[in-house]
Amino acid sequence: MAAPSSLPFDPVEEAARKWSARWDDADAMAVATSIMRVQQLLLGRIEAALRPLQLTFARYEALVLLCFSRNGSLPMSKMGQRLMVHPTSITNIVDRLQAQQFIRREPHPTDRRTTLVAITDAGREVTERATEALVGVRFALEALDPEQMKSLYDLLRDVRLHAGDFPAEDAARTWPNAFHNAE
């Protein structure tokens, strides 16, 4: 489902051509620019799939995180850490989800300084519907077959590892059966 192009050429390739005439490492520039553009494309398609449910991808990720938690609740600070967002951002996400009645804030049973965020039944239901919508569009990655997805995942994981996104001792770990179709 490709959108019509507004340009008769690939602007990233053109930029790389011009870049290489002036500076070094045009390949790295082209790859970084491609990743940024693909991120825009993916987010646009994902947000479009979630829009009928009045969710953004950030709010969807928060709901999924709560669904994956043992008790359906987590401290706000832990949510921010796991979603890798600033405390102000997690507060905004939680405020919006609470206004939609998808989550509720609860006092922590043993730590008065901590607020728990708990998913509601409505939050669980919208998470299921949102997940169906995203799976229906293959998270906007229908252009890739399973082997390509695994290769791309591995390459991007190496970049994240090098940037310190997770501990190096976790480098050999993979999700159970995450790419079983590619092997």
Rank of each mutant, 00 (worst) to 15 (best):
P11K: 11
E13I: 04
E14A: 13
A15R: 06
A15F: 12
A16Y: 07
R17T: 04
K18W: 12
K18A: 08
S20A: 14
R22K: 13
R22N: 06
R22M: 11
W23T: 00
W23M: 08
W23A: 05
W23N: 01
D25M: 10
D25F: 14
D25I: 03
A26E: 05
D27A: 11
A28K: 15
M29L: 14
A32P: 00
A32G: 07
T33L: 15
T33E: 15
S34T: 15
R37D: 07
R37P: 00
R37T: 01
Q39R: 11
Q39P: 00
Q40Y: 12
Q40D: 14
L42G: 02
L43N: 12
R45T: 03
A48E: 14
A48K: 09
L50T: 03
R51M: 11
L53R: 01
L53N: 01
Q54M: 07
T56R: 06
F57E: 10
A58M: 04
R59I: 00
L65S: 07
L66I: 06
L66T: 02
L66C: 08
C67Q: 11
R70G: 00
G72S: 03
G72Y: 06
S73H: 07
S73V: 01
P75Q: 07
M76K: 12
M76P: 03
K78F: 06
K78E: 15
L83R: 09
M84C: 09
V85Q: 03
P87R: 12
T88E: 12
S89E: 12
T91I: 06
T91C: 11
V94Y: 05
V94F: 08
D95V: 03
R96W: 02
Q98F: 05
Q98C: 12
Q100L: 14
Q100A: 15
F102S: 04
